[in-house]
């Protein structure tokens, strides 16, 4: 029987493809939000025994990755009146293809690493690496500042999945710090986005190319 964790992880991987394949910015933000919400459930299933610590992580993850950050991004999007990612550096079909290749490589790579007995046969490591790669792909191939922030968010999601392997070894303080940093980081990026808009009246990072040697 398939473990429920694996079903969630398959959803996460499918959402990677959705983010890479759609030109609608609202859709990429919503997909990233949904991915965050799915990930919030993950600690409850991975961790044996339901404690206040795991519940706190789940609630904080849901709040920050699922609601707060996507909300901030959607607000930025509404303020600037942009709706589509037009002309990414790499087209939508090639980036979907790259994502598929990356996911395949992640599965191969994960198969070659030694795992603790309780993690053998789950999708945690390959899903983590695949999500990480997708995030990196979004980050590097998109022009719009908001898309790049979404890419960063997905990259962090990949790392969050890997963190599930270690939920016993990681004290709460560190996890809380990670979430807080993520939030503050995106918050500061949001402020910078706002300044980019005021300065250039657009959010195209292509305009940010004056500095070079």
């Amino acid at each position: 029987m398939t473990h429920p964790v694996d079903i969630l992880l398959v959803v996460v991987i499918l959402l990677n493809f959705l983010v890479l394949g759609t030109p609608a910015l609202r859709m990429t933000i919503r997909a990233a939000a949904l991915q965050g919400a799915v990930l919030a459930v993950l600690p409850l299933l991975v961790h044996r025994g339901f404690g206040w610590r795991v519940a706190a992580i789940a609630i904080a993850t849901m709040g920050i990755k699922g609601i707060l950050i996507p909300g901030l991004l959607e607000k930025a999007m509404r303020d600037i009146h942009i709706r589509h990612e037009v002309e990414p550096y790499v087209g939508f079909v090639p980036s979907l293809f790259l994502c598929a290749v990356g996911t395949g490589l992640a599965i191969l790579f994960a198969g070659n690493l030694p795992l603790a007995p309780e993690h053998v046969g789950t999708l945690l490591v390959p899903a983590s690496l695949a999500t990480l790669l997708s995030g990196f792909l979004v980050l590097t191939t998109r022009r719009k500042a908001i898309s790049q922030v979404v890419g960063y968010l997905i990259l962090e999601n990949g790392i969050f999945i890997f963190g599930q392997l270690l939920i016993e070894a990681m004290p709460f303080l560190v996890e809380a710090g990670v979430l807080l940093d993520l939030f503050v980081g995106i918050f500061i990026m949001g402020i910078v986005i706002n300044h980019i808009r005021q300065e250039f009246s657009s959010l195209d990072t292509e305009l940010l190319s004056e500095l070079k040697d």
């Binding site: 500042a145 960063y152 500061i188 980019i196 500095l211």
Partner: peptide, 22 residues
């Protein structure tokens, strides 16, 4: 120009720090 530098710094620095976390 300082805005461009800050954006690059934040993006590259944040990815670097994410990789350090991994």
């Amino acid at each position: 120009r300082s805005l461009e530098a800050t954006w690059k710094y934040l993006m590259i620095g944040s990815v670097g720090i994410a990789i350090a976390l991994l």
